[in-house]
Design a protein around this nucleic acid. Structure first.
Lengths: 195, 195
DNA sequence: GCGGTGATGATACGCTCGTATCAAATTTGA
DNA sequence: TCAAATTTGATACGAGCGTATCATCACCGC
């Protein structure tokens, strides 16, 4: 097996552990077991735990942007800004096991970024920045918002998605309520995007 | 010193540690050092770590509701629903060190609730429920929203506050931008609350 | 005065963690 | 082909954790 494949396999194991139990579940030994290799191997490819975590997180950040972009591409050929926001919110809300795993990663990463602003925390900030750029660019190209307003609105939608996602996962609202909530939110947003 | 005072002092130490470094920073030994007592004493009053954490978190949840309510009481004698939401968002956003500590607690608690739905996680859910009830009641008494809509809007505002707070603490937006963001959000909300 | 009951302190145990060490196996290049 | 380099494996080490144990101290009704 090539070096790159091995490394990919190990990072896959890290991702699965992250999605299942958050950042606490990622120990060198757990990664080894999950990947079906020895502890030494995890050390060999990941050098240190921080290295392993932050490279995995970088890969995950790229994937989360890609995920939303490809989903948007499956929509209408020329979706409105409101449509794009709707797709983003639908995609971001943890309604199936995969996106719940995604949200679990995001939340434990968020905690890491805020309480231990080190290597891994920086990966979360890159994640947020990448997502915000994409959202803001989308808004600008599909509405008449200026750059500043678009960026702020992108942040608002991201914040809402994160917060409502947490309420959903904590069982404070159910999936139907989350849909009604975002639907109403988007209706209030409509005049701002079509003006 | 009475039993109750000792217990209070130890819970205070837990709160300070929580605000400073999140839930990871709360170890039995760290609590002992922070409170200036011996490890044995922390065990004596807190029985087990889970007990200590969840009782401290319950106290904190009550305090967070109280905090917002007293702040709202300092406003106009008869504030509108929109005013109340504005006060809540201002209060919830982590703009000073105290509210940043609060947010740090909330975030690491959120992670705990989602990845380890045990004793401590349930305290977070009580926190959310208490806050949501208060917000929804406020909305109902000061607008014409029906109970269902009011509850959903309360959830939306809570979610937004949490998400935007995280963006603020992660340094993705600054305080001025957060103010502009919530200001714009509330303006869009106005017709819904005054209709 | 004093025995007993709760409060306090010092220390130990068993576990898991990240990381280091050392040896064996495998691949590689001239 | 064979020595050097790379890759894999088993195990050890020291630190920090939650918790348990055991001895001492202080108070208080009698």
């Amino acid at each position: 097996m090539s070096e790159h494949e091995r490394r990919t396999e190990i990072m896959d194991a890290v991702e699965r552990l992250l999605a299942r139990g958050g950042v606490d579940a990622v120990t060198m030994r757990a990664v080894a077991t999950e990947a079906g290799v020895s502890l030494r191997l995890v050390q060999y490819y990941g050098r240190t735990k921080d290295d392993l975590l932050s490279s995995t997180l970088d890969r995950l950040a790229e994937r989360s942007i890609e995920r939303w972009r490809t989903r948007a591409a499956h929509q209408d050929a020329n979706p409105s800004a409101l449509d794009e926001m709707r797709v983003f919110l639908d995609e971001a809300l943890p309604t199936d096991e995969e996106s719940r795993g995604f949200h679990r990663v995001g939340v434990s990463l968020e905690a890491l970024a805020i309480t231990h602003p080190g290597t891994a925390g920086r990966a979360y900030q890159r994640h947020l920045d990448g997502l915000a750029d994409h959202l803001a660019n989308t808004l600008r190209s599909r509405s008449r918002l200026d750059a500043t307003t678009a960026r702020l609105l992108a942040m608002e939608v991201m914040g809402l998605a994160h917060g409502v996602g947490t309420l959903l996962m904590a069982g404070r609202i159910d999936e139907r309520e989350a849909g009604a909530l975002t639907g109403d939110y988007l209706e209030r947003l409509r005049p701002r995007l079509t003006a």
